[in-house]
Every structure is written in C-alpha cells, then in structure tokens.
C-alpha cells in the first residue's frame, strides 16, 4: 500500500498550479486581484486601492473594476474546475503548467448586475460553474464586501472552452 501523499506536498502542488493560472494574467495583477484556496474552493480578493475609484464624490469603486473583478473570478474558477481532476490524478503538473500555460476560456458574453455601490474597502467573489460542456460553459459569480449575504454585484457569463488537439 502506498502511503498517503504528505499534506504539505498536496497543498504546494495545488497552490503552485493556481498561482501559475493567476500570475499569467497581467490585467489581474494590474487590479491587484489574488485568490485564496480551501481545498478546491476559490475566493477571489480585490484589495482596495485609490486607483479603483470611479466616483470620487461618494466615493465608489468604478463599475468597470467590479465587472473586471467578476470576469477574472469567473474565468479562473472555470479553468480551475476543468484542470482539477487532471491535477489530482497527476496527469498535469504545476511544472508543465508553468512551461506550457493552459489556454484560458474565451468570454462569449458577460452580464453584470450592480446591486450596491462598491465601497472603498476590499471585495470578495466566488464563482460557480453551472454548466461546463466540451465547448460551452455557463458561470455565475457573486461579489460582496463586508457581509457575505449583502452582495454588491453578481454576474453570469458564457464562455467558449479552449480546444485541445
């Protein structure tokens, strides 16, 4: 019987795979977006920064920042859920991902509901893949700031999956 993989090795493999997806997106870096992972569950984080403001009088975060944050969260979640099984089974390694970046899904359409103005605070988002087929996927994403139950934005998007081979 093979002993179970040490927990640190599991965490390191998953974290470096996630980092290779996120670090490869310059626009996510520009906005300061990063991800926290618990098992396979991802939470996207958007730390507050003055440059993210759209309405200085309120002040409120720019709607375009919120839309961007939700779209980044949706794309990373979608790619993450589609590589998870290969990553766990050892068919895909973080080293391979760094050398040969997995192609990202392409957005077909994206609809954002702005429910409340974005306060000058950190934001959080979680995405849920409602349908993931060979070609098309549908993803819903919710974002909040201080209270998980009081969303400040939500979005649904459709994506074209990258074709392999």
């Amino acid at each position: 019987m093979t002993p179970p993989e040490p927990v640190q090795a599991v965490k390191q493999r998953r974290d470096s795979a996630l980092a290779s997806l996120v670090d490869a997106v310059p626009y996510a870096q520009f906005l300061g977006i990063y991800f926290e992972r618990h098992g396979d569950e991802l939470t996207a984080l958007l730390p507050y920064d003055d440059k993210l403001i759209g309405n200085p009088a309120l002040p409120a975060i720019h709607g375009g920042v919120i839309a961007s944050f939700l779209e980044v969260a949706a794309i990373i979640e979608l790619r993450w859920t589609t590589i998870w099984a290969d990553l766990e089974a050892g068919r895909l390694t973080p080293e391979e991902m760094t050398q040969n970046l997995p192609r990202l899904p392409k957005t077909i359409d994206f609809t954002v509901d702005f429910l409340r103005s974005g306060l000058p605070r950190d934001g959080y988002a979680r995405a849920r893949v409602n349908r993931s087929g060979r070609r098309y996927a549908s993803v819903h994403v919710e974002a909040w700031q201080d209270n998980r139950a009081r969303l400040f934005a939500q979005a649904t998007g459709h994506f074209l999956m990258p074709q392999t081979g």
């Binding site: 490869a24 375009g64 970046l101 192609r103």
Partner: peptide, 27 residues
Amino acid sequence: DARFVGDPVTGVIHGGAVSALMDTCGG
C-alpha cells in the same frame, strides 16, 4: 497596454478592460 492583457499567449486585452471602457462610455 501590456498591463491590460488577459491572455498572455495572444496579447489580447482582457474582457474586463473592455467592460470598463464601455461602462465609462455609457455613463
């Protein structure tokens, strides 16, 4: 701008940056 790129393999601007431009223009 290289900082606004969404897909580093192709150099295509991220959809979110296009959204930001269209949201600003709509407003």
